[in-house]
Design a protein around this nucleic acid. Sequence first.
DNA 1: TCCTCTTTGCGAACCGGTTCGACAGTAGCG
DNA 2: CGCTACTGTCGAACCGGTTCGCAAAGAGGA
Lengths: 340, 340
Amino acid sequence: MATIGDVARVAGVSRSTASYALSGKRTISADVRRRVETAVRDLGYTPNAGARALATAQTRVIGLLAQFLEDEFAPAMLQYMLGVSNTARELGYDILLATEADGRNALRRMTDSRMVDGIVLLNVAEHDDRLPILREAPQPGALVGLPADCTGVDVFDLDFEDAGRLMVDHLHRLGHRELVLVSQPEHVVERGGAYVWRLQNAAIEAARTRGITLHAEFGSAHQPEVGRDLHGLLDAYPRATGLLINNEAAAAALPTVLHERRLTAPADLSVVGRYSDEFARTFSLPYSSIESAPDRLGRMAVRELVRRIEGQAGADEPHVVRFVTPELVDRGSTAAPRGD
Amino acid sequence: MATIGDVARVAGVSRSTASYALSGKRTISADVRRRVETAVRDLGYTPNAGARALATAQTRVIGLLAQFLEDEFAPAMLQYMLGVSNTARELGYDILLATEADGRNALRRMTDSRMVDGIVLLNVAEHDDRLPILREAPQPGALVGLPADCTGVDVFDLDFEDAGRLMVDHLHRLGHRELVLVSQPEHVVERGGAYVWRLQNAAIEAARTRGITLHAEFGSAHQPEVGRDLHGLLDAYPRATGLLINNEAAAAALPTVLHERRLTAPADLSVVGRYSDEFARTFSLPYSSIESAPDRLGRMAVRELVRRIEGQAGADEPHVVRFVTPELVDRGSTAAPRGD
DNA sequence: TCCTCTTTGCGAACCGGTTCGACAGTAGCG
DNA sequence: CGCTACTGTCGAACCGGTTCGCAAAGAGGA
């Protein structure tokens, strides 16, 4: 493999001159530059990443920590990962991926050994045990998901409170007066998935202020339990006319359940979900839903992270906590309740 | 950040001695070793990955190239990625992930700049344009997916021929005489997804030798088209008693379609799919299926790759092409056809 | 013609590890 | 008691880049 020394020799210049010719950090005569460039081409020279990292203290790599927790809907995570990865590449960074269960260890490994210039944490829990480690690391960090304590990192998340309100308001405006909300399994919440609470509490509050009934329940994360859950809820609240779904597995199971009950949306029941557009397309869920925008969140996190890495963000520019305003995509699964 | 020089100074020894004390590559007195170790602990020393890579010409990083192609079922890819990533970590390697559309570029970047010790290619097409580049690279490569030319790389894939035969045999043995096979969209095949052909051709051949009818068709990759496709097929072949599904989107759509037609499996129709166990669990597909074992394939690929990286595979040990024998997981969706 | 300023290139040092060869000091042995 | 062998440590070189300081050469002005 060719080194910059080889390039220099072939071009008949010193190593430093070759380096400057390539980086453009000093003026170099057109003649020399041309000779260096052809030498690079002839030799197929590519700088050694390790050597460059050592010399510049920059790796142009971003660490991505994805946690795959029991009973969370794994395919949803892929969209976040792709958003991060593709944006990083656009900005000239590669992705070092850690999926191991022990995120603390992975994080320490990456930051201490200086393999990365910055860190993106996905699926951040309310009291995430990776955060203390990230705060001590010399590299900047960006989170997708809202922890209790946001100091020292940039945070991006969907505005789940707004999402909860939006779902309730939408059905309330159509005339619904009794709703059911199906959330993720309860132990997802206990483990720190605060977003479930945030949406649910906001929905409950919105229902209260509007004087309508909302039954908030947890649903399972897998079939066939989740199908049974849905049947159980529809049995338990026969007068409910609207269904809110903050649970991918439940959304995926709903078409079958409705068929089994000979119900159609929105004629018999109005339905609003909360999941990504990609998810809706893949499973062709015909339900209006709140876009969870994983690619957008991943993109925002990386953008801000790179700004901070490259010091365009002033040294002590305050950290950012940014919420994406949810949008309701109308797929025609909601209507005024039947007047019976 | 502490360097090995700091460690050496605190321990009162030379840098080389500190290095040997940590690596154990030369005998070191117990006393010195202890001093070095406490210095490491006190300083929180972790070796700089770039420096080590430069000195040892080893990065302990594996490059993972995942392609997300239009109209392929993206969530399935996640399982492969996790299999690779988790196995790599167990063996002490980290994963550099590339998801960009231009895999050739990503591959070249990783190999030329020596960011990785080896490469795993996912979703390998029959004539994959990344392969020529991989063959020229100094790092070894392992593929998941079978290309036309396997020279210079280790190859792992499901035995799709066997899978096709297995599906047909299973239903034939139960007494079925007319089957429908739904494959991936036709342009997935054209783009090089040879596995679709391999399964389909083997199924056709198996049907021929057993003297039964098999209608092989392509299905869409998304809803709602794929739902319509399924309805169309069931309309077109009313005498078919068995359905073979090599198309995740079709499998996910099938429960709804069957409900709409007031059919149940296996009473009215026997169904066999081909997808991962995880996929079946997530969507709780109640259909017997051929396990596509993405985690196992990812694991095998990484294992072999690491063997080769670490030179346990003799310098010129011949390359491996290994097929995983598919297994049919019985979920009770097949039975003898109705005798009407 | 001489001096100054700018352009252009070079040499050396450095980043933080690893590893080879040399060399004291000690033990073993005759 | 002297020789050899071994143990434990050190210094120096190297991996492949980047960057700082310096100097030679050429341009421009007085």
